[in-house]
């Protein structure tokens, strides 16, 4: 057994961390709430190659695996970057037999969004606001088309959420139910990876502050009430890391395990990021719930991400269904 990243994956994570540090930040996420574009934006992500990580080399991508994408997505999540690599991951699965569209995904010449729900008015979908090309499941077939986006005041503006009514569409794959399900599971894994990054950064912000802030003559991190809440959040982050790695590995190497692993990771991610984000606010006290502080931007991400691609209840039920069907006992 070797359950660890390899050297290339560690290097990729380090490179991604550097890239995102220079290209996106919570400050960008705050400005997006006032209408500024999300950072780093589609063009920058395409240029660095992150939109094509799982796109085959023949279509201009890197031909790498979901795990390779997940370690990059973690770094994107840490700085609340957008658009989401979830969209790239999901679209790459759906477009596997459509090299032209894959190439347009990887080079950023088209902005894709993947729509959940009815094509006449989708559920709020990731990155729909800035997209021009929509993928949807229509009567069991995978379709691509143009559409009309409506949106509300965003809780987390980096997610680009919008409902879409398709105004034109053509069928890409008949009978695409299984393909759609796999794409959604891969999307859930990458979303959990972004949440892992966001949760880890939130906990680190809380730890940094607890080491520095003094109250009643002591650093607040020395009080068990503060220390233990940060530890519980950190334990959650490390456990989430294990589930994300397992699920991403399964997507590449053990497709039979992907449904269980993806739902486990997504359900755990929802709870973990929410706790991390609420903890970092609580540890900061008054400044923690101001507009200027970064904490609420992670809280916004948590409150939105927990509902995307299936909420915790949906994924816990999916895990239960698989377990009742013998997924652990066969």
């Amino acid at each position: 057994m070797n359950f660890d990243l390899d050297t290339d994956q560690r290097d990729a994570a380090a490179g991604a961390k550097d890239f995102f540090a220079g290209q996106a930040s919570p400050a960008d996420a705050r400005r997006a709430l006032d209408g500024s574009p999300v950072a780093p934006g589609r063009a920058a992500l395409a240029e660095v190659g992150f939109l094509g990580i799982t796109v085959p080399e023949s279509a201009g991508g890197a031909g790498a695996g979901v795990l390779d994408l997940a370690v990059v997505a973690e770094q994107a999540g840490a700085v609340l970057a957008g658009p989401s690599l979830v969209t790239a991951a999901r679209a790459a699965v759906l477009l596997a037999d459509h090299p032209d569209l894959l190439a347009a995904l990887a080079d950023g010449s088209r902005g894709f969004a993947v729509l959940d729900g009815p094509v006449g008015g989708s559920a709020p979908s990731l990155d729909a606001r800035d997209a021009d090309t929509f993928l949807a499941l229509d009567g069991g077939a995978l379709v691509v088309g143009e559409g009309e986006v409506t949106s509300g005041a965003p809780i987390d503006a980096t997610r680009g959420l919008g409902s879409v009514r398709l105004t034109s569409s053509r069928v890409l794959v008949e009978d695409a139910g299984a393909l759609w399900a796999r794409a959604r599971q891969v999307g859930a894994v990458v979303l959990a990876a972004e949440d892992l990054g966001a949760a880890g950064r939130a906990v680190q912000m809380g730890v940094d502050y607890a080491q520095m802030r003094t109250a009643f003559g002591r650093k607040i991190g020395s009080y068990q009430a503060v220390k233990h809440s940060l530890v519980d959040a950190w334990v959650g982050v490390e456990q989430l890391r294990s589930l994300v790695w397992w699920a991403a590995w399964a997507a590449d190497a053990a497709p039979g395990e992907l449904p269980l692993a993806a739902s486990a990771a997504k359900a755990f991610a929802a709870e973990t990021l929410e706790r991390a984000a609420e903890t970092v606010i609580q540890v900061h006290g008054g400044v923690g719930f101001t507009w200027e502080h970064d904490a609420h931007l992670y809280w916004r991400r948590a409150k939105v991400d927990r509902l995307l691609l299936g909420d915790e209840a949906e994924h816990l039920d999916a895990v239960a269904a698989l377990v009742l069907d013998g997924a652990l006992t066969r």
Partner: peptide, 10 residues
Amino acid sequence: LGRAAVAALA
């Protein structure tokens, strides 16, 4: 069951 299984898998 889902919650217990996810915790155990984690």
